[in-house]
Design a protein around this nucleic acid. Sequence first.
DNA 1: GTAGATAACGCAAGCGTTTACGAAAAGTCA
DNA 2: TGACTTTTCGTAAACGCTTGCGTTATCTAC
Lengths: 329, 329
Amino acid sequence: MSKLTIHDIAKHAGVSTGTVSRALNGRFGVSAATRDRVLRVVSELGYVPDPDARQLAKGSRTVIGITRFSETSLRNAYYTLLLDLIQEALVGAGYAVRILDTKDVARPGVAGMIVPGVYLADPRFEELRAHQRPFVVIGEMPSEYTWVEVDNRNGMRQAITHLLGLGHTRIIHMTGSPIGQTAQLRLETYQNVMRDANLEPNPELILDGRFTQLGAYRAMQRALDQKLEFSAVACASDEMAFGVLAALEDAGLNVPKDISVTGFDDLPLDDTIEHLPLTTVHQPMRLIGHTAAQLMLELLEGAAPRGVLLPTNLVTRASTAAVRQPQTV
Amino acid sequence: MSKLTIHDIAKHAGVSTGTVSRALNGRFGVSAATRDRVLRVVSELGYVPDPDARQLAKGSRTVIGITRFSETSLRNAYYTLLLDLIQEALVGAGYAVRILDTKDVARPGVAGMIVPGVYLADPRFEELRAHQRPFVVIGEMPSEYTWVEVDNRNGMRQAITHLLGLGHTRIIHMTGSPIGQTAQLRLETYQNVMRDANLEPNPELILDGRFTQLGAYRAMQRALDQKLEFSAVACASDEMAFGVLAALEDAGLNVPKDISVTGFDDLPLDDTIEHLPLTTVHQPMRLIGHTAAQLMLELLEGAAPRGVLLPTNLVTRASTAAVRQPQTV
DNA sequence: GTAGATAACGCAAGCGTTTACGAAAAGTCA
DNA sequence: TGACTTTTCGTAAACGCTTGCGTTATCTAC
């Protein structure tokens, strides 16, 4: 089957190409009836407009940049997946996507920026604000700007509640870098949920794993050396959970028999590594990517900035179990 | 300045647009004299052809896929940088770049694949071979196919020679996953250079860090626990070197006073983390990206597969120093 | 029912390239 | 030198889409 063009659609729907174009782009000047008919034909034939032709006709090419991550905050797998999803949505809408630096915001031809993992305190954030270009932030919630973030509170609440339900009371929280809102929210929620259960959060049980495997491994090891008493570890990221798992394993402890561990992110794992299936808070990755792209398109059409909070939910797997010997508070 | 088009070039050079196009694309039917004149005007005015228009005129859109990494082999920063560079070159040549999975090779519209960090033993490699589409491999050297890789031998040789020159004789080699050629070559070279210096390589001094910070940290820690005697660590990646640095620091050892450490890759570091400046083997990242793109374009034009080996060189920084108390073999 | 306003749509001219095709210029050979 | 081949280059028609303009159909209000 040779390439399907807008002319084919026009012919099938009995209208002109101009009308098809307008229907497709939601422009005014098309009656609801014909729009529906056109759209039906489009989906029946499986027509998808050629991004090149579209761009060409629209005028100068518009590219949307996605920044690199800061190393520490979020890791490889997460980023790559996100990139892919955003690309999918944006290219579908006729934009080009490039990986850029925040300073490229000003570059001609760059219509906007999607910035995952940028801290509000980050100088790069200032850079973005200084320019006129629209941008959408992933993973932080700068008021007055456009962002998409997951429901950290609810996610962590579910994880801690799950652990409490299994009888754990001495629960370590492995927190990430304290610079970001994300880590902060997860930490706060941990503290709140503990308090709600009448367990005054013990500062000793809050460890900083810097959002990395190694950081969490070291923190955990130090805690074990100090004979810290605990039966569960709630981590602010999967990455850190893997570090914790390794430290526990090296100490001869069994997960989940001796210690329960929870993560946060639900990263798709590389098949080549076998890990204990992790009980973790799932982030709707596809939705995040899709939403970020959608918000960008919205912004480009002149919409007002807004934030979107996406749901999270706990996925119970093999790294958590009932506490071994019930403890008295 | 409004957009520069092929017409502007044509006018300035006193030729037709067709001629400009032919000159630009190296097609036959244009004399050397006019080609040079056109090219000169092009670079003078800084004209760059519109990829969209080019694609549109050329026919159906062609996209070139880049696969995701397998987690373990090469890390985030490396990958992202590479992605950026390849994108730059390929988009400039009028192609679209998408992040895809190896199984998408067969997808219509995908002209080729660039696959960084795929092992030869990987089933994904078979997948690539099974289809007709051209692909170029980064970081492995599959004979009969097209690849770009850095000179692992020379790089590791320089690193070890540097350490030997500083008086070190008990040098640990922190190797990566043994599945890949890369780790294998670096390991072999370490052994060879040691032998050349009349130091029979000691198997005890070969540690597996699995190409990750955590892996290297654990391996190093174990070695320290066993009171292994050594004065330097030559790592097969920067990532692992950071793990080693952390382990040494935790053990109260000073780098480079007590122990010298070398890396491999010369990853651009995230500014937010302060690390000891690492003596490491530099990989010409820009060149790698550029070469991969170039090879792909070549392949698309029907050229025969070939491999390109890129140079490496040692960058001496603060993590290496003369051995403390000279040792006798 | 008619005039005037408004909404719906078709027409066709681009957007910046590439690439047949054919004309003109330059070589080639006897 | 003339006829014929080859090379060089200009012309113009695509490529698939958007959009301003003008035309026709549909409303609205009297």
